[in-house]
Computed example of a mutant assay.
Amino acid sequence: MQEAAMPVPQGDYVPASRHGGLIYTAGMTPRQNGRMMFDGPVRTGQIDVQREAVRLACTNALLAIEDKLRGDEEIAAMLTMTVYVAAEDGFSEHSKIADFASAFLRERLGDRGICSRCAIGVANLPGNAPVEIQLVAAV
């Protein structure tokens, strides 16, 4: 994978919004320079192949958050994460996909990266993405 660049919106929205000390991201998929790098659906027995897709989606969300930081501010805490998983029928290991995201945030932010989360299975996602991640951070 290339070096990460700011996520490019795929519609009429912004990558992140800030209100006071809170930053909310849009749903981030595993895109790089606007191009989808992984596709769905997530299949039973093939969870590990999604690790890099999840890491890229999380990277995009963190870049969007960091773009809203002012001066020497930093992320004080990740508050919540929603992980959408486009999975084949019968898939039931959504939380294992979300664990990749939790591990990535802990790796990048230490204990500040551990947050409440929700893992949701969906029929499909924009651009045929396997995952979409939305974060809320406190500054």
Rank of each mutant, 00 (worst) to 15 (best):
Q2D: 14
A4I: 02
P7H: 01
V8E: 12
P9Y: 11
Q10V: 09
Q10R: 13
Q10K: 08
G11F: 10
V14E: 12
P15W: 08
P15Q: 05
A16F: 05
A16S: 06
A16L: 12
A16K: 11
S17V: 14
S17M: 14
R18Q: 08
R18M: 04
R18H: 06
H19K: 13
G20S: 11
G20V: 06
G21S: 02
L22T: 11
I23C: 07
I23M: 07
Y24T: 14
T25W: 02
M28R: 00
T29D: 05
P30W: 02
R31E: 09
R31D: 04
R35D: 04
M36V: 09
M36W: 15
D39G: 12
D39Q: 15
G40W: 06
G40Q: 11
P41W: 08
Q46T: 06
Q46R: 15
Q46G: 12
Q46E: 10
D48Y: 03
D48C: 00
D48I: 00
D48R: 00
V49P: 01
V49E: 12
R51H: 03
E52K: 07
A53E: 03
R55E: 12
L56P: 03
L56K: 04
A57E: 06
A57I: 04
A61Q: 07
L62H: 05
L62D: 08
L63Q: 06
I65W: 07
I65Q: 02
D67M: 08
L69A: 10
L69K: 08
R70Y: 03
R70M: 11
D72R: 13
E73V: 09
E74H: 11
E74Y: 10
I75M: 12
A76I: 14
A77N: 13
M78I: 15
L79G: 01
T80S: 15
T80K: 08
M81A: 15
M81S: 13
V83G: 05
V85A: 09
D89C: 03
G90I: 02
H94R: 10
K96H: 00
K96Y: 04
I97R: 03
F100S: 05
A101E: 02
S102H: 01
S102M: 12
L105E: 02
L105Y: 08
R106A: 12
R106D: 00
R108P: 00
G113H: 01
I114P: 02
R117E: 04
R117S: 10
C118P: 00
V122P: 02
V122K: 05
N124F: 09
G127Y: 01
A129S: 15
A129G: 12
P130C: 13
E132A: 15
I133M: 06
I133N: 06
A137F: 02
A137K: 09
A138F: 13
